[in-house]
Design a protein around this nucleic acid. Structure first.
Lengths: 336, 336
DNA sequence: TTGTACGCGTTATCAG
DNA sequence: CTGATAACGCGTACAA
């Protein structure tokens, strides 16, 4: 009933456990014994016990993923990217999503010293000195997806979401929009703050003033929240464009505008972020800033594998460039 | 540099390792020693090594999830449900998504005998006798999400997608549609086959004939695939309703219909499956069959925890009922 | 090339 | 209530 051990295999093959171990780990052994061992392994359906192996060699072949929320399309895309490169490797992926509060993150991080993971891919929406310190003290390599807080000296892959916003604002300004509003997500998160800064900066660059009316906020990242923000607006004539925190929120905004018989993009242009499948599905199709989440995942995973292979190399940082895909929600069609 | 062991803690606290172990595991110990041990643990930042613990107690505190593709909205929702209940427990979640071919599934399953997981939640889109046999031979409990193939005697949570289709067909038939087509996904998967059967059965029940023209097939589960199926249709007058394999495909179909200036729902009604956020975002809002994926995840995880707690109890099976949410894509509005 | 024997960090048994 | 010690299954000196 109990799983066969390396001992059982050795017995069956008539060799020592050492030889079995060698065969398993690809250490040169006489072809004859290799054959006998492999036969015994097959007959017994032997699979080496991973706990014992981990205990001995001090590596778990597991990598931990710590995200705020896997339901968010951007995090999902990152996860896919990471999964994609990890499945080519020996590593398994441990999912620690929905780690939403700072306290949870801290508890999380502490358990990582238990040795069940050889690396961590980390993309928090909050940062704090305590978290920074904890991450630095971790006995395993860490790759950060996002902006590096002061003092967090780890590899990271980074995209300037402020720059992404700027892409959107520039595009809108160039096409003649003057009254551009940002529909942000919650401002308590660091990405939220960065988006706001990027918005203000690029508005200034385009000689556009930023009044408080131009800084709106959705409660979360859903379509419903977008709809509600739009519904809370009393006077739409003060706007001619909305830059939304993601495509989902943009879709909600668009829905409300349609109900109010406001024309997109004639009366108001709408731009989303993430460039998800949704942007082509909407009507009119949504102009959107692609933050290349899946690619960030791929790059992060590769970076982590390199770091594990070579723990002492200098810290890496890779910047991903945002990209604007222009569709009909932001440009008045010149075709019939 | 190396992580402190239970020995270091014992030394520091001036007690034996046994006592430290007891404190950690909540076995009664004199309050005085408890205090000393906890102090030492805190001072050293001790975290028990999980591999050693696993080796000894033969449980990894990990649960493995084997899915076809986490990018699919339905699987994502299941994952969220599972994550939600597991985070209340001591179990970590291992993700093995993108296991797409039968061979990959088999390789996958075999490694599960290595002891790195205490349970498996399994939702394959292919089945085969070999897989069934392998799953039955697994040394850990398994919960199957989906239909149980012959001989696979494990707990499962099940939703009759055929019944879901029937809900849609009945609704369409009652509202006067006669020429209802099914836009299915790939027919090589078992869910695909089940949907087809459900469709045929409910059409018959409504005295509607099913010609081959009424059985369409999208290449995959994307909006693009939906668009392409629609684009391949030559004569739209042979249809007055489409039941689509999921909301995403439905959105692509709707887009093409809009381009062709066909009115939804007047000319053609459209129904989706999954009842995702997308269905409220589309215009007109999409009638959709909710297959309660997140709930299936929750139920499956709870079932697995019960099974782990009580390995010898009789096999459980829970059926989730599909539910139709009617929106404007299938009913001609009677309001102005 | 192969085998013996020890140790990885825990928990559990058994004496005290 | 506590301490000494034997496993758990594997990899790896070291010896042969």
């Amino acid at each position: 009933m109990a799983s066969p051990t390396i001992n059982a295999v050795a017995l069956r093959a008539g060799v020592s456990v050492a030889s079995v171990s060698r065969v398993i780990n690809g250490i040169p052994v006489k072809p004859h014994t290799v054959a006998r061992v492999q036969e015994a392994i097959a007959e017994l359906n032997y699979e080496p016990n991973s706990a014992a192996r981990t205990l001995k060699v001090r590596q778990s072949d597991q990598i931990c993923l710590s995200f705020a929320d896997i339901g968010n399309p951007a995090y999902l895309a990152m996860t896919r990217g990471i999964d994609q490169v990890l499945r080519e490797s020996k590593y398994r992926l441990i999912l620690s999503s929905s780690v939403s509060s700072t306290d949870e993150i801290i508890t999380q991080l502490k358990t990582l010293s238990r040795g069940y993971a050889d690396g961590l891919i980390f993309s928090p929406i909050y940062s704090s000195p305590e978290i920074t310190q904890l991450v630095m003290a971790l006995p395993i390599p860490v790759v950060l997806i996002g902006t590096r807080p002061e003092g967090l000296l780890v590899d990271n892959v980074y995209i300037d979401s402020g720059k992404g916003i700027a892409l959107a604002v520039d595009h809108l300004a160039v096409t003649g929009r003057k009254k551009i509003a940002l529909i942000n997500g919650p401002l308590t998160t660091s990405p939220g703050i960065r988006r706001k800064q990027g918005f203000e900066k690029s508005m200034a660059k385009n000689d556009l003033a930023v009044s408080n009316d131009l800084l709106l906020q959705a409660e979360d990242f859903t379509s419903k929240a977008g709809y509600e923000v739009a519904a809370s607006i009393k006077n739409f004539s003060q706007y001619d464009a909305f830059v939304c925190v993601n495509d989902l929120v943009a879709s909600g905004v668009m829905r409300y505008l349609a109900e109010k018989k406001l024309s997109i993009p004639k009366d108001i242009a709408v731009v989303g972020i993430d460039n998800t499948e949704l942007s082509t599905v909407l009507n009119p199709a949504l102009t959107s800033v692609d933050l290349h989440a899946e690619k960030r995942g791929v790059v992060a995973a590769q970076m982590l594998l390199r770091r594990i292979a070579n723990p002492d190399k200098p810290i890496e940082q890779e910047v991903i460039e945002p990209e604007l895909t222009i569709r009909l929600s932001s440009v008045v069609g010149n075709q019939k």
